[in-house]
Simulated scan of single mutants.
Amino acid sequence: MSQIITFGEVLMRLSPFGNKKFIQANTLEFYFGGTEVNVGLSIAHFGANVKHITCISNDFIGDTAIAYLNKFDLDTTAIIRTNRPLGVYFLEVGAVMRPSSISYNRSHSAFSEITPEMVNWQDALANGSWFHWTGITPALTQGSFNTLKEGLKLAREKGIQVSADPTYRSGLWQYGLEPKKALTELLHYSTVFIGGINEMNEALDTNFGYSNEDFIEASKLLIEKFPSIEKVFDKIRTSINSSWHKIRARMWNGKDFRETEDFDITHIVDRIGTGDAFAAGLIYGLQYYDDYKAMQFASAACALKHTYVGDVNYATTDEVTRILEGNVTGRFNR
């Protein structure tokens, strides 16, 4: 059976219960996540065959993380174990006008020591039909950039579709590689671009605005500069406050521009992983639907993720489909 492949760090999230700050708290709850594995877990929960490639600590925390991934029937056979600790991040969940705050502890994590020699990409991609990467992984270390690049090169040689979410976070790029050069190099191995105007401006060294007209022109230029890219998808978030957002999406596939309606999310439970839920919904949707319906599925999946605590979207395909059919009242299912 063909597999969807994700590659990136698995992190443990520690957070006070509810909307407390750490200074208020005496107890914490933990979850496992990480940008790319959030995508993989969500797609696996939809019922697809997914393999995640990463490096995890060889201790009981690593055992627990792998057990969590296995709950979703995620293929963990390509996971490497090392004696460094699992990466951790700390989250204070905001509310209304108070934003959420995050602090990372990942600079000496198990994943930080990954190198191309540690991953057998031939075996890992043997059944691959899709490979998803984000801008987080190449930002961490030279080893993670080199390892990702090797995987992407082989994926394209094998004709595997590659989706790119080239998120740029300036605080991560500390090891000397110039971010724009690195990300644009990896975009040449990608076929589907998941990102907005900011990401396109970064890749193109342009200054497009946020209008639909600018989005179309930026998409055309992106496809011209990176000929392997065939489609561009953009999730748009409108923030009323920390607890109330609106989500919609738009696309350019080289021929057509389409845009979804807003999903009004008036009471956010957890915003972490919502972009990953969009990417997961899109990747899954593109296996079964046309581009527009896949984007609608992704938007609904993203909206639903705001209702789940933790990093991962636990929505099923049936639940996403019900949202698409207009069932947004939240009434009991009996």
Rank of each mutant, 00 (worst) to 15 (best):
A139Q: 02
W121P: 00
A95L: 13
G159I: 01
I102A: 07
R98S: 03
T167Q: 12
I223S: 07
S211L: 09
D205H: 15
A164W: 03
E202D: 13
F208T: 11
Q161N: 10
P179S: 08
A155I: 07
L140R: 00
S107N: 12
K181Y: 13
L140M: 06
Q161V: 10
I194N: 10
T147P: 09
I102T: 10
Y168M: 12
E202K: 15
H108W: 03
G128F: 02
Q161I: 09
A218H: 05
A155E: 05
I102C: 08
S109I: 02
G195M: 10
K220I: 11
L222F: 08
A110Y: 04
S100Q: 04
E150A: 10
N201H: 11
E150D: 13
G94N: 04
F145I: 01
N198L: 12
S107E: 11
S100F: 05
E217M: 13
D123L: 07
G128K: 02
S170A: 14
N207E: 14
W130K: 05
H108E: 01
G135T: 05
P166Y: 06
H188N: 15
Q142F: 06
L177F: 08
I216H: 07
E92N: 03
S219A: 14
K153W: 00
T115F: 00
E92V: 05
G195V: 10
S219W: 12
G135D: 02
D205K: 14
E213Q: 14
A124K: 00
V96G: 01
P166N: 07
A203F: 06
A182H: 10
G176Q: 09
T134Q: 10
Y175Q: 06
F215I: 14
